[in-house]
Design a protein around this nucleic acid. Sequence first.
DNA 1: AAAAAATGTTTCATTTAGCGAACTAAATTC
DNA 2: GAATTTAGTTCGCTAAATGAAACATTTTTT
Lengths: 146, 146
Amino acid sequence: MPNEIFLTMSISMLNTALEARVQAFEAQVNLSRHDIKVLMHLTEPKRMGALAEDLQVLPSTLTAVADRLEQNGLLQRTRDRQDRRAWLLEVTDAGSTLQARARAMATEGFRTLTGLDTAEIETFVNLMQKAMNNMTAESCLVEVKP
Amino acid sequence: MPNEIFLTMSISMLNTALEARVQAFEAQVNLSRHDIKVLMHLTEPKRMGALAEDLQVLPSTLTAVADRLEQNGLLQRTRDRQDRRAWLLEVTDAGSTLQARARAMATEGFRTLTGLDTAEIETFVNLMQKAMNNMTAESCLVEVKP
DNA sequence: AAAAAATGTTTCATTTAGCGAACTAAATTC
DNA sequence: GAATTTAGTTCGCTAAATGAAACATTTTTT
């Protein structure tokens, strides 16, 4: 099996396992794992469109998610002063608290699941940083559009 | 941001991007990307239950997928001689051909998307091998069950 | 040996998540 | 100023997954 295929399949399986581990947390915070994932991507205030791009979904997909997170007091929508069509999504204090809990859980989960040590994790980070840079700089993502 | 969080998010984004690249192929072969993913996991004959475990879904999820792949002549179901309740899924010649095409496409896609060179890919494989071994040996996957 | 429990897969109703066209309002282009 | 494009929402639709129940078979218990 070519290395790239092994990696593609392994990445998928690891991703699935990491997402599955969010299951217990879902019940605790009354959010779906997709909602949690969206919240975790809000490391800074972002426009709906930019967030959709990050997550590679259509903006219409995020409307309901933003509604739920807003209703749960975890984020707030504010108009972008530079373009009154646009909304900025910003995490609230409650949202930050939840993000911190989710990060702690995910950090521990990642280690438990993969069994990688600190040096290996740093190597992994270097590889993924290069991959992420390549994905964005080269604009070789498949653009999500209708 | 802790390394583990960066990795968790990057793995998710890379996985999404890899899956998105299957889109053109879907139209060519008249299968959904989920069907293609299931087919690609059949590197050897497997039981429905084992395949479900690999993919971390319930067996009921795979019934319709197996139906479509069988109807397309890409796999066949045979009874497991060791347990007549169980079905073995085995890729047909046509299925192997499609797998080969998908592998070629995914191999090229992986390189293009990540920009990683051969040495980096080998490092990545070592890390992922350790992670996969840990995931299965430690039985620390969240068991998928109703 | 018979009965009970467990397992493997399917069926089918339900839920969830995403798409995509159409819409409104705002910005940009001509 | 008018036409075109963009940002996000609405809403109908589809696909994918769950999960309980059913059936057949196997395994375990009595």
